[in-house]
């Protein structure tokens, strides 16, 4: 096959490594990210109640303004300060 000019940025084809798993939630700062789909908040309220009953975690509630755009920088920087983040998809 001849050499073609690629439309693809090869850097985007390299798989991103998964973050190391946490040994325990205890003592962690846990982000709960509501992507702003309907009922995301109610779902995460329940998740927060269950997790805080079982683990010694500091919960941080995060919210995207809209599900259809990438998270804005302030939400991402807040997420970076968490040991783990749960993302709620809903509808």
């Amino acid at each position: 096959m001849p050499t073609y000019v690629s439309p693809i940025d090869d850097r985007t084809r390299e798989p991103l490594p998964a973050a190391p798993r946490l040994a325990s939630l205890d003592g962690q700062r846990l982000g709960l990210l509501d992507i702003a789909k309907p009922r995301s908040r109610e779902f995460l309220d329940r998740v927060e109640a269950v997790i805080t009953a079982r683990h010694d975690v500091e919960v941080v509630r995060l919210r995207k303004p809209t599900p259809s755009r990438p998270a804005p920088p302030d939400v991402l920087s807040e997420a970076e300060r968490c040991g783990a983040v749960l993302v709620a998809l809903a509808d």
Partner: peptide, 27 residues
């Protein structure tokens, strides 16, 4: 060196219809 449409199926650079091979000359 115009290339062949068949190559582009293999590369996956298409939308389901045949495409023009993006050779260096054409680009």
């Amino acid at each position: 060196g115009a290339g062949r449409v068949e190559d582009l199926w293999e590369l996956g650079w298409h939308d389901g219809l045949p495409v023009v091979p993006p050779t260096r000359d054409r680009v």
